[in-house]
Design a protein around this nucleic acid. Structure first.
Length: 364
DNA sequence: TTGAAGGACTCCCTGTGACT
DNA sequence: AGTCACAGGGAGTCCTTCAA
């Protein structure tokens, strides 16, 4: 296999500042070590670059190969460590399981990286990782909700819990507060069963908070909001993001929105319409114009992130910004517009393929 | 009685640097 | 490029105390 092969990516041929991944991945249970996680982060970075360059779909029904120089993985050049991580990564299973509205349970289990080997390329020892074709869509089809995080920040975080909490924080960057069931959070962070609640907070959350604050300026607090007896079952997180971080996120978001396939953009707009009291004609005016659509998504993101302050009436502000104050529903319209997104030729969002999947369920 | 909170300890992973 | 020894720190465990 030569380096010019379409589905072989050499790391780091290029680097993308921000990684994008479906929230399904963020909310999944990940059982990686820190080194394995860094490998996966590099892979997602390469997929993000390809996503922007080629748009969807990426590599339909093809395995994808990644070539990563050992020097990119560890400064120590401790090759036995890399071999151990590679061997371990090859064994990692990912599973999806969900129950639909009818109560029918569906599952899919896979090994996303079935082949890991080393080889010499251009005088450098490299790790070659093959990504299973069936796993590719789960990493590349961003769907309606995605997580964007800084690639270098993620790589610089030492603690595995810091990496995972950083991902989760960034998946909620549009809101200052969010809640998690403690059991769910422990599950997706892969916290050992032996951890007491206090161990969980100090070894996972507190460690992550201090490291993330040091590396990014983002800090968070958490407080119990629900208890069963004395047992804390739900935590409310409050996030404090510095303005520079907001700017960075808004820039990243704008970049993504501009390159988003039209079908996904329309679907995302319809999802966000729920937060406004727009009439049907105004909604149609937005989704029928690529300029208005891009502007709507951009302004929504900037307001939600806090970049645009003092917005008292979100609907009025948006309507004025888009210049659609006088767009009204025609009285004699006999066939009301559907409240669902228009059909497009673009691939389905991942969430539409797999339903209301909530999280990775590892095989017990 | 149970679970949160706190401290202390061990184990081992990871990075560093010397060396071949 | 690759091996090895070492140090530091993170991860995990266990025990005690306190309070609901």
């Amino acid at each position: 296999m030569s380096d010019s092969t379409e589905n072989l990516m050499v790391v780091p041929s290029k680097k993308q500042k921000n990684n994008y991944q479906p929230n399904l991945i963020t909310e999944s249970r990940q059982m990686f070590t820190a080194l394995e996680k860094n490998i996966v982060v590099m892979i997602i970075n390469q997929l993000t670059i390809r996503y922007f360059e080629k748009s969807q779909p990426l590599f339909p029904n093809q395995n994808v190969e990644f070539l990563i120089p050992f020097a990119e993985l560890s400064k120590s050049r401790n090759y036995s460590e890399i071999e151990r991580a590679a061997k371990s990564l090859q064994l990692k299973q990912q599973g999806f399981a969900f129950t639909n509205e009818k109560g029918e349970r569906y599952f899919k289990y896979m090994i996303p990286f079935p082949l890991v080997e080393n080889l010499m390329s251009k005088g450098k020892m490299c790790l070659k990782i093959t990504m299973f074709s069936g796993a590719v869509p789960y990493y590349t089809e961003l769907g309606k909700t995605w997580t964007s995080y800084d690639y270098e920040v993620m790589r610089s975080l030492g603690s595995l819990y810091s990496k995972r909490v950083y991902e989760i924080l960034m998946s909620h960057y549009r809101s200052d507060t969010f809640t998690y069931e403690v059991d769910h959070l422990r599950h997706i962070l892969n916290v050992p069963e032996t951890f007491k609640y206090f161990d969980f907070t100090r070894k996972c959350l507190d460690v992550a908070n201090s490291e993330i604050k040091e590396k990014t300026g983002i800090e968070f607090t958490y407080e119990p909001v629900k208890k069963e007896g004395k047992r804390v079952t739900r935590l409310k997180f409050t996030k404090k993001t510095p303005l520079s971080q907001i700017e960075s996120e808004v820039d990243a978001s704008r970049e993504y929105i501009q390159k988003m396939p039209i079908g996904e953009a329309v679907a995302l707009a319809w999802q966000w319409f729920a937060g406004y009291t727009l009439n049907e004609a105004q909604k149609a005016a937005i989704t029928d114009s690529s300029d208005k659509l891009e502007t709507f998504l951009r302004i929504h993101t900037e307001v939600a992130s806090g970049k645009r302050k003092n917005v008292k009436n979100a609907t009025a502000y948006m309507v004025k910004s888009l210049g659609i104050e006088n767009v009204k529903v025609k009285r004699k319209e006999t066939t009301p517009k559907s409240t669902t997104p228009r059909r497009t030729g673009t691939p389905k969002a991942i969430s539409s393929i797999i339903g209301t999947m909530s999280l990775f369920q590892p095989e017990e």
